[in-house]
Design a protein around this nucleic acid. Sequence first.
DNA 1: GGATAATTTGACCGATTGGTAAACATTACA
DNA 2: TGTAATGTTTACCAATCGGTCAAATTATCC
Lengths: 216, 216
Amino acid sequence: MAIPRAAKTLRRTRIQEEKEEQILEAALDVFSVSGFRGSTIDQIAEVAGMSKPNLLYYFRTKEAMHRALIDRVLYNWLEPLRAFDAEGNPESEIRSYIRRKLEMARDFPRESRLFANEMLQGAPHVLDMLKGPLKELVDEKAAVIRTWIKSGKITYCDPYHLIFSIWSTTQHYADFDVQVRAVLGEEHSGDGRFEDAARFLEQLFIGGLRPDRSGR
Amino acid sequence: MAIPRAAKTLRRTRIQEEKEEQILEAALDVFSVSGFRGSTIDQIAEVAGMSKPNLLYYFRTKEAMHRALIDRVLYNWLEPLRAFDAEGNPESEIRSYIRRKLEMARDFPRESRLFANEMLQGAPHVLDMLKGPLKELVDEKAAVIRTWIKSGKITYCDPYHLIFSIWSTTQHYADFDVQVRAVLGEEHSGDGRFEDAARFLEQLFIGGLRPDRSGR
DNA sequence: GGATAATTTGACCGATTGGTAAACATTACA
DNA sequence: TGTAATGTTTACCAATCGGTCAAATTATCC
């Protein structure tokens, strides 16, 4: 007789690791496109290549699957912001933050869309995380940026909106990929657009944040 | 006996105008949060305050409702970009484009989210419009920006990525509203954040695009 | 190799989905 | 005011939804 599913959390077999991995991979495919409400367990089961009851053996509900997926993806997603360092000089820190975020948009677009979907729906599953850990992390980095401003290394500006604008410009290339490709045309739909975007954004932010050159 | 619905398009009664308006308003509420797949006709009917069959009397399918909604919203959505003018000087044109887009994010967040949802899902209903009319409009405005660059009014940059970055930074305040509020905290969740954002973004773009001050 | 635990499946359930049919009610207009 | 066109509702349909169950299969370990 199968053991109650709670026991799974005590010891995990090889098969469990593999299947859960497979399922979350498929779930990312589906949830990132259709959002939570728009996705079905059958869809995910099909992408994962297994039967629906089999999938439900590993995750008891659609909710549980979604939560596991978000938990798993969240840590890496915030990594670039955590790496944002007060010690480095502003120009190179901002430059590499932009680079890192653009790389994530290029290499992990599904993860970006998963969060975007969540945001559009009002963040029903991650609101606490936004108000707690994320806010704290951003507050911390905003303080760093303020020290840069006070020491005259970058021009005066609102650090929160600076962070928002880096998030939005970079994630745009994942979340609105289809629009970007449509506007740029087939011929610019290779990965080259990420290099072009990096060049533009670095120029924009470095130029836009340079300390006042003519008195303000 | 009720006339076949095709006849409705010939002459529209007062009731038709009112009810269709009511329905599309409710549809905007629902589709903008849950996307096409995640929304149900019952939900929309409830928000619209009418029965499902009644709603289906005006729009035969969920698809038809969604299409009508998109058609209706699209024209206004592109208005700010159309207003982007080659004659004005770059600084004030960019400034007012940012203002207009931010005002739309503030005043029409549902419309913004409707499109964002559509993009995340790969633009199944508007791909042709993106590749056609939108691309042409952007190409046209990109050409304007290039003349500004050639005449030395703004610094050299990729006009497409410039447009993308204005889109993304401004729409962010509608699409990721819940995140913005969470990070800024309750006390900054009044409409003041749009003024702060406007100030920051104007500074960023005007500063970032100012012709080279030190030789390149 | 056999017992036992872990995994997989097909058949199924009640609720919800998008949508229809036809009776009924209301409006517009001669 | 009568009547034909328009609008609304109730009852319903087949398909799909999230999820269960028990039986069948496979892996594990002595």
